[in-house]
Design a binder for these strands. Structure first.
Lengths: 234, 234
DNA sequence: CGACGAATTGATCTGCATCAACACAGGTGG
DNA sequence: CCACCTGTGTTGATGCAGATCAATTCGTCG
């Protein structure tokens, strides 16, 4: 909510700088700048030149890809400690998608040149990067399989579970996600109408409860059952 | 077809070993083994421990992911010079998908430990790996968008074009791809029935010609028009 | 309060999956 | 050399999940 939460310990706990010698986190720290965005802010745009590498410190960010007709898909949701906006650095120098803050969000960023310098200087970062991108590619491939073999209800369940996994402290009474119906639709590859119907059914079944631009997971076990295709186990 | 086609020049021309000092390609060469597979052979299985890193030298290979019900999706098609089977090395040590030879195929392979040793010894390989995985992630994300925003005919066109791009020498009379109707269906996220109907229509329109377990692209321009959503431009 | 974006919910439509029946090629073995 | 079998492909008929359209309500904020 307030002053800069950026410390060497935070960097050491991020996915990208894990395992870096103290000298490295110190250097990265000095070269970073901190930026805070309000909900709904576009952090970078699809097709724009990559100016920075980004590390989310607080809040939630969605990565959205659009086609020529403006139809959108959320390709990834970012939580604190995760890196984003670095793909384009190693391909064509352009952001392949846009980033939008889902809630008030604070990020650390490095200028592109500074960042690639760090990667070359500290091989741990390069290996972390390989691991990260491999994990994401696996996730993307799993989603590809889902999109062509599973039905909408399963895909919505998957989308929520995937985001919920690794959440720190489940709040009493459920896990609250800052996702609108449209967000959920773009995660699951459906329409907001269908997403709304699915959530209404889950509301009645006591599986999840939803409000304006947010969803609360009440029974992750039931969601897992739905996601794996078993007909809702009571 | 015959003797080992593995030379330092071949390695230097591959996506993974590009830019490596001669010392490195020599070392990689000495540690590689060559394996040839007949059409239809399963090169590795989904969920099995990663034993090798693979580099395709000749032929075509598909990477297929299955769910619990056995429904399949082709997540990638491999052409000569491309690396495959390395994702799992950096995640959980298991192959996330299976690899099947689409035609007679020859690969070079390295034991997992040998390979990661090479990667650590030669930082060029690590950077190549980052670049490669980033490119594939971009492709996977583009496919995700397609799957949820485009119709079957566009997706089939995309699937063929994506495979056709970068093909060396277009044969006289068209580009022949060793893909069955089922393969095309699993690339486009549809059924072989629908894939067959689409190809029949294209056959009539002179856009593509298909036979048993193969398709020939006759008019890439027409495919591109379809893929971008324009109603078939004559 | 007024206005606008988010969500709901019923009615209707349709793209494509599914099912079924058949055709054809190639390989295998008697 | 033929009979058979299995994998591959085609094509018509039918059904349905979910998209689309339309109308209304709700929440939030200026």
């Amino acid at each position: 909510m307030n002053a800069a939460p950026l410390t060497p310990a935070v960097l050491a706990g991020s996915d990208l700088f894990r395992g870096l010698p103290a000298r490295g986190t110190g250097e990265a720290l000095r070269q970073a700048s901190l930026v805070t965005h309000t909900r709904g802010t576009r952090i970078f745009s699809q097709g724009a030149p990559v100016k920075h590498a980004h590390l989310l410190l607080r809040g939630r960010v969605k990565i959205v890809q659009s086609n020529a007709q403006g139809e959108q898909v959320i390709v990834r949701l970012i939580r604190p400690g995760e890196t984003f906006g670095t793909l384009g650095l190693y391909v064509d120098g352009l952001y392949p998608a846009e980033a939008v803050a889902l809630s008030e969000a604070t990020e650390a960023r490095w200028h592109a040149g500074t960042f690639t310098g760090l990667v070359q200087k500290y091989p741990e970062i390069a290996l972390n990067l390989v691991r990260l991108v491999c994990e994401r590619l696996q996730e993307a491939q799993a989603r590809l399989r889902e999109m062509s073999t599973e039905r909408v209800e399963q895909r919505v369940a998957n989308a929520l579970l995937r985001f919920a996994v690794r959440e720190k402290a489940p709040e009493r009474g459920g896990l609250r996600l800052p996702l609108s119906r449209r967000d959920i639709a773009e995660l699951a590859g459906t329409t907001m109408y269908t997403a709304s119907r699915v959530l209404t059914a889950w509301q009645r079944a006591g599986i999840a409860s939803s409000g304006r631009a947010n969803v609360t997971i009440l029974r992750p076990d039931a969601l897992a059952a739905i996601s794996s295709g078993r007909p809702s186990s009571q």
